[in-house]
Design a protein around this nucleic acid. Structure first.
Ligand SMILES: [Zn+2]
Ligand SMILES: [Zn+2]
Ligand SMILES: [Zn+2]
Ligand SMILES: [Zn+2]
Lengths: 147, 147
DNA sequence: TTAACTAATGAAAATATTTTTCATTGGGGT
DNA sequence: ACCCCAATGAAAAATATTTTCATTAGTTAA
């Protein structure tokens, strides 16, 4: 659950862009914060948020995650399972972290280490391409599934 | 256009798995080969292949690219533009190459250098995860769009 | 506090991509 | 040439997402 100060900060950020703080938006952001690390889909967020906000519509969830993405609060990701998934942007790192996707059990693990500076510098030079962010997934088999 | 030998090889690979060589499959693979580097979607493949095979159905294109993916001939990729895109698996490298995606013009450039061995070794150790392949996209601005 | 303005909402319809169904065709082995 | 069953095209269905629209409700300023 967001603290009063966090809610106030969120309200401010919305206001700056001409948006309003609604109970639905607060509830959706709460669900995402409370499930940090889970990479929820709109449908999954909807199921959680209905507990708090039973009258909410799925379209509002879609609209809100898109809004939060535009505001830089969320990242949208695609793990090739047919749905978009969202996670909080960590303001500690300027680039998105990497993901380990298990081909057997589908688990998604986060990788702290970035370690792409060398490669990115090389690419920037060789291809004359300014890199703003990256999307790095490693597919393979997790510890559990290799036993 | 595939040579007679390439077609024969394709037919063999199909046969090994109990599949048949149809004019549709040949035409679809031809389109993909002739557009190497273009990352075509099923709909785009369909438009090309209709010139050769006007009676073909879109469902056959979908079925065929999935078959070719299962056979290890194609990779399916997602550039977040709402469609799947396919490209030939290059049998020179064991891992898929990286892509530079321009956030302005949408162009997709391929990166020869892999340079992920160090990172992958580190991940394999630290996270006890066996890496089979990766999906690496760099988002940013291409040379042309930075002018 | 109230009134006014307009953004946001829920429900339903629409859209877009992909998959499935099913009757028919045709590849490939005999 | 014949048979078997995999493959096909067309249409329907399934799935995820977006849009429409009438109504509700934040926010601001009188
Ligand atoms: Zn696993
Ligand atoms: Zn993550
Ligand atoms: Zn560009
Ligand atoms: Zn490529």
């Amino acid at each position: 659950m967001m603290t009063k100060e966090e809610t106030e900060k969120f309200k401010q950020e919305l206001k700056e862009r001409g948006y309003k703080l609604t109970p639905q938006r607060r509830a959706i952001l709460n669900v995402i914060i409370e499930n940090e690390g889970r990479h929820l889909s709109p449908e999954e967020i909807y199921e959680f948020v209905k507990k708090e906000c039973p009258e909410i519509g799925l379209a509002t969830v879609y609209r809100t995650v898109q809004l939060l993405e535009k505001m830089g609060v969320l990242y949208r990701m695609n793990f090739d399972d047919g749905v978009s998934r969202y996670e909080l942007v960590k303001n500690t790192a300027d680039h998105q972290h990497h993901h380990l996707v298990c081909l057997k059990c589908g688990s998604i693990e986060e990788v702290e280490d970035d370690l792409l500076e060398v490669l990115e510098d090389k690419i920037a030079q060789k291809y004359d391409f300014f890199i703003k962010n990256h999307d790095v997934k490693f597919y393979g088999f997790c510890k559990k599934c290799r036993k």
